[in-house]
């Protein structure tokens, strides 16, 4: 699987999306993450591992505490992927504008 595939797969799960959304506020202890999700530490750890494999979060250990931090690049890749379609349609809709303008000109040129 490509990096993008892994990011998509990891973000397909609503709990993991909520975890990622939570981490946008800043670095968080894994134990603090479990609390708002009403999940066991074990369950949270499984989700965190999936996010780690996708490169979406980085876990660092300080003493006995595990801290999680969001990594922006894979999220940018996901956003860029959808932006391709936006660029495609923006270009096509611009081309339609050009076509309508040309159509109008040739109508106006028509002998009365």
């Amino acid at each position: 699987m490509s990096k993008l595939d892994l990011a998509f797969a990891a973000l397909a799960d609503p709990t993991r999306r909520r975890i990622v959304a939570h981490l946008t506020r800043g670095e968080t202890r894994v134990t603090d993450l479990a609390r708002p999700f009403a999940m066991s530490l074990n369950a949270v750890s499984k989700h965190v591992k999936t996010l780690e494999r996708a490169g979406l979060v980085r876990r660092t250990r300080r003493g006995r505490e595990h801290f999680l931090k969001l990594r922006a690049q894979p999220l940018r890749d996901v956003a860029d992927w959808t932006a391709q379609y936006e660029r495609f349609w923006t270009r096509r809709l611009d081309a339609l504008g050009g076509f309508l303008a040309r159509q109008k000109e040739s109508r106006d040129d028509r002998p009365q």
Partner: peptide, 19 residues
């Protein structure tokens, strides 16, 4: 890339906010 995934309400909002 994985069509088996269920699509979820609010996903677009989430992605936009995140981006």
């Amino acid at each position: 890339e994985k069509m088996a995934m269920a699509h979820t309400q609010g996903w677009t909002y989430f992605l936009d906010t995140l981006a």
